[in-house]
Simulated scan of single mutants.
Amino acid sequence: MLLCFVDESDQGDFHGFAGLMADEHATKAITDSLNRTMRQVAVDWGIPATTELHGHPIFHNKEDWKHVPTRVRVGVFHKVFEAIVAEDVVILLRWVHVTRLAERQARNFYPVNFPPEQVCFQHILQRAQQVSATRDTYTLIIADDRHDRDRHRERFATYQTEGTPGVYMQTNLDRLLDTVHFAPSHMSRMLQAADMLAFIYRRVHTVTESDPRASREMAKLWNTLVDSGRVHNEGNWP
């Protein structure tokens, strides 16, 4: 059985999700590695070892990370990504272009105009189903807690009874177990890993770095993921 940890990142027309699929062994290994990283940061810079690995404040030098030097914060990103790709995981990355989605739905007279977060999350679920079927196993979805969690659970139940809407990768998600489980990211290193993936995924696609050093580091982080061969069917819609 696999676990799929999911988080999102959005800005402007970009609405994206990252999913990190791992079995119990990879989940344990990545969690241990991230805990070791934070224990070292705690010793060196005096922040709690339980501090959340959260992409936005780490990158922007905020919250608990405001007194941690840039080189250390960049190093944390690299250590997180290296810990992820060192294990037998599957990385799901998908984003929806908000304006193009609305234009497509209007142009084709969609009977229901689905919001971008629903479309993108559905695409993540379809890819988790695809990976599960290929590996002849089942997957439990664990997502970062959110205010509209009940609506996502309802949609998930509908997908399993009526199938996902449209003909694109149409499926009843029979390889995904139970319901979507939501958990607070500050209590889960794996959700934090998904957050870090989502943050870099969004930034690579939405920001042209003005500092050449930042541009180089972003390229290195992105290449760590791509070159690992662990990214499955990445892309955007429409």
Rank of each mutant, 00 (worst) to 15 (best):
E154D: 11
N113S: 14
G166L: 08
L140S: 13
D148C: 02
P111M: 03
R127M: 14
A133I: 11
L125T: 00
V167W: 09
N172R: 15
Q130K: 11
L173E: 10
D145H: 05
L177N: 06
F121C: 07
V167G: 14
L140V: 00
E154V: 15
H147F: 06
Q129S: 10
A128E: 04
Q126C: 12
L140W: 02
N172V: 15
H152S: 14
V180L: 09
T179I: 07
T171V: 05
I141L: 12
G166I: 08
G166R: 06
R175H: 08
Q160M: 06
M169G: 00
Q130A: 15
T164H: 03
T161L: 13
R135L: 13
S132I: 10
P115E: 09
L140R: 11
R155C: 13
Y138I: 01
Y110N: 13
F156M: 08
E162W: 00
Y168K: 08
P111K: 06
T158R: 07
H147T: 13
L140I: 00
T161D: 10
D174E: 11
T171K: 08
Q170A: 15
Q129K: 03
R135Q: 10
A157P: 06
Y159Q: 06
V112I: 13
E154R: 12
E162K: 15
R155S: 12
D148V: 02
A128M: 07
R146Q: 14
A128Y: 01
C120L: 03
N113P: 00
D145Q: 13
D144R: 06
Q170K: 13
M169R: 10
R127E: 09
T161G: 08
